[in-house]
């Protein structure tokens, strides 16, 4: 089959995407597919029209690739693609909206408040900060509403650190999220076609938080796969599966959770989780006996099975 691998792009997660894409290309080639590697840019549509792939493997992360934009284009071009559809991408990419949907559906997620920069500039939102801080407590997690790979995520230990952390997070997005910090085990549940793979637990080697460097550098974070969840397994899988349903995923996704003493809390869901050497979804698949090539093959099958959404009909 002629498979276009969409990778790179112009976003901040370009390098991660290139690594995901390279690995997928190898797997596709090993599976006997004809691979067309496309570094996504201004000529994407023209390239797709010229190359006429039978399917697109979306190995893009961050804005453009993970927020439904590229998926929308693929729908219009009637090219089947891997991963979730437009709607789930849009909903998961906005962490604030996703949290609201999860909360409304009764899926546990840490308390939060969200602002855009305009609220501070023009509406005096700063005056609400003391109350938010009192409600959410310290340390407080401050992160951009969109984007992944821990870029722009800061911890504020006290009120004095909040403004600086906000300015940092606003560098990545016009909207930021202040979230209660939940102490607990860091878990990732990857799902394929609504079926949960074994949990992967991240144990950062250094005292540093689960940051960008730790995520993509071999040897910086220790992973346990499959993680031993004990009695918490039921509630964790339940939270992950309900997240899948609430946000309307299909194909695959990764749900990041914290397992606190009183149960799991969903932090976010990633529509296109990383597929690099150090990424969690491939690790989970492997723990389930699904090697990387078979994982890629399965994602391609799922994309072909999917009935195209209304846009292209």
């Amino acid at each position: 089959m002629r498979v276009a691998v969409l990778k790179g792009g112009r976003g901040l997660e370009r390098q991660v995407s290139l690594r995901s894409g390279a690995r997928v290309e190898d797997a596709l080639a090993a599976l006997g597919h004809e691979v067309v590697a496309i570094d996504v840019g201004a000529e994407l549509v023209a390239t797709l029209q010229a190359e006429r792939p039978e399917i697109a493997f979306v190995a893009l992360h961050g804005s453009g690739g993970e927020d439904g934009t590229v998926q929308e284009l693929l729908e219009i071009l009637r090219i089947p693609y891997t991963g979730p559809g437009v709607r789930a991408c849009v909903r998961a990419f906005d962490k604030v909206g996703a949290k609201a949907d999860l909360r409304a559906a009764g899926v546990p997620t840490p308390d939060w408040a969200a602002f855009n920069a305009l609220a501070f500039r023009e509406l005096g939102a700063a005056e609400t900060l003391p109350e938010i801080e009192a409600n959410l407590g310290f340390p407080l997690v401050i992160k951009p509403a969109a984007g992944g790979s821990s870029l722009g995520v800061r911890f504020a230990a006290s009120a004095a650190e909040v403004p600086e952390a906000l300015v940092g997070a606003f560098s990545y997005d016009d909207r930021v999220l202040l979230e209660r910090h939940v102490e607990g085990r860091e878990l990732a549940i990857s799902l394929i076609n609504g079926i949960a793979l074994p949990a992967v637990e991240a144990l950062p080697l250094e005292a540093d938080r689960f940051n960008y460097e730790a995520r993509y550098e071999i040897g910086r974070t220790e992973y346990v796969s499959p993680a031993d969840l004990g009695a918490a397994e039921g509630p964790i899988l339940d939270a992950a599966l309900r997240t899948w349903d609430v946000l309307g995923f299909d194909g695959f996704c990764r749900v990041d959770l914290i397992l606190a003493p009183d149960g799991p809390q969903v932090l976010e869901a990633n529509a296109i989780p990383g597929l690099t050497d150090t990424s969690l979804l491939p690790m989970a698949a492997e723990a389930a006996g699904l090697g990387f090539e078979r994982l890629v093959e399965r994602l391609v099958e799922l994309a072909l099975e999917r009935v195209p959404a209304g846009a292209a009909s």
């Binding site: 390279a22 690995r23 190898d26 590697a37 570094d39 071999i218 492997e286 090697g291």
Partner: peptide
């Protein structure tokens, strides 16, 4: 930085079969 949107390197990368165990 690549100049063409189509990566001529649909060539095999060396790391075709890296697994968590390899890492």
């Amino acid at each position: 930085s690549p100049s063409s949107p189509v990566d001529p390197g649909a060539r095999p990368h060396r790391r075709a079969h890296t697994t968590a165990r390899d890492l």
